[in-house]
């Protein structure tokens, strides 16, 4: 199907984009890579009055080093994320998870920022951003603010990016110490969307797990941290038994949905298995 008619704005600066959103009427949609928005517009599940295309806005693409963090522009495409040397060095988890998103064609268009603002529970990048304690830089009519990942994902398909706001960049703090990371995903072959996935970052010290951070994909309306597992792993011996015991707690406090792909209890089972695999691999076991 063809989208319903809309007015189209093609700003070249962030200021122009904010103005175009303000002038766009009741129902304005920002267009990034279009890999989520265009499909819903084609199905007429969305029929915005105005579409504000960020494609030509300067300065939203690319990754830069900012001392204690790397900063990823909202319009950086999935394929550019996968090839970026700073991400490879400081946050390989992001590149690994992005490599599992969709297919080559979608990754050439879809953006890091778009995937995070869209906040699909089955999307892969929200749990990764949450596990890495990323910070979201949002500009809007009220100016510029920075929101921590723990406050960014508000509900199903809902983030701290309000109407009239733009996500401009995401700051990912550089981790100090020896971290290794792993994204474990379970999906149907013909559909890349995660049934459940787990993002794990683990710091080892003297044969023990000093610290672990674990993000869960599709275990509720928003991405979640597996806090109980993180606590159980802190200081634990880096052995298969200790990791397996800690990861038994991965589903605690989760509220996954039941749908065509999986029942809630099956998702909870998967969360434990995938957390064990992700942590074991990250811990080098």
């Amino acid at each position: 199907m063809i989208p319903a008619p809309f007015a189209y704005a093609r700003p070249t600066t962030v200021e122009e984009a904010l103005q175009a959103i303000a002038d766009g009427g009741e129902d304005v949609k920002v267009l990034a890579g279009g890999q989520s928005l265009i499909p819903v517009m084609r199905l007429r599940l969305a029929a915005p009055e105005t579409v504000v295309d960020l494609g030509k806005v300067e300065g939203l693409r690319g990754v830069r080093d900012d001392g204690d963090a790397i900063v990823i522009g909202a319009m950086t495409t999935h394929s550019d994320v996968m090839a970026d040397p700073l991400i490879a060095e400081h946050a390989p988890l992001i590149a690994e998870a992005t490599g599992t998103v969709a297919d080559r064609q979608v990754r050439h268009r879809g953006t890091f920022g778009g995937a995070l603002v869209h906040a699909d529970p089955a999307g892969d990048l929200p749990a990764v951003a949450l596990a890495l304690d990323a910070e979201f830089v949002i500009v809007g009519p009220g100016g510029r603010r920075t929101v921590p990942a723990s406050e960014f994902f508000v509900d199903y398909l809902t983030t701290a990016v309000g109407e009239g706001d733009l996500l401009v960049e995401v700051r990912v703090p550089k981790l100090s110490g020896e971290w290794s990371m792993r994204y474990e995903k379970f999906n149907r072959v013909a559909q890349a969307w995660s049934i459940v996935a787990v993002a794990a970052a683990v710091r080892r010290e003297n044969g023990r797990i000093a610290e672990a951070r674990i993000g869960l994909t599709n275990m509720g309306p928003t991405p979640l941290r597996a806090r109980q597992v993180e606590e159980a792993l802190a200081g634990a011996e880096a052995t298969a038994e200790a990791v397996a015991a800690a990861c038994e707690r991965a589903a605690e406090g989760t509220e996954p949905s039941s749908d065509l792909n999986a029942q809630a209890d099956y998702r909870q089972h998967l969360a434990k298995v995938l957390t064990r695999r992700a942590v074991s691999t990250a811990a080098g076991l």
Binding site: M1, G34, Q35, I38, P39, R42, Q105, H108
Partner: peptide, 28 residues
Amino acid sequence: DTSNCGACTVHLDGEAVKSCTVLAVQAD
């Protein structure tokens, strides 16, 4: 109708994309 099949794949500035999931105005 769902951006899944890839039959519409073309190259945009040298990269494969699904041309059913790109607006013509984005190719300007």
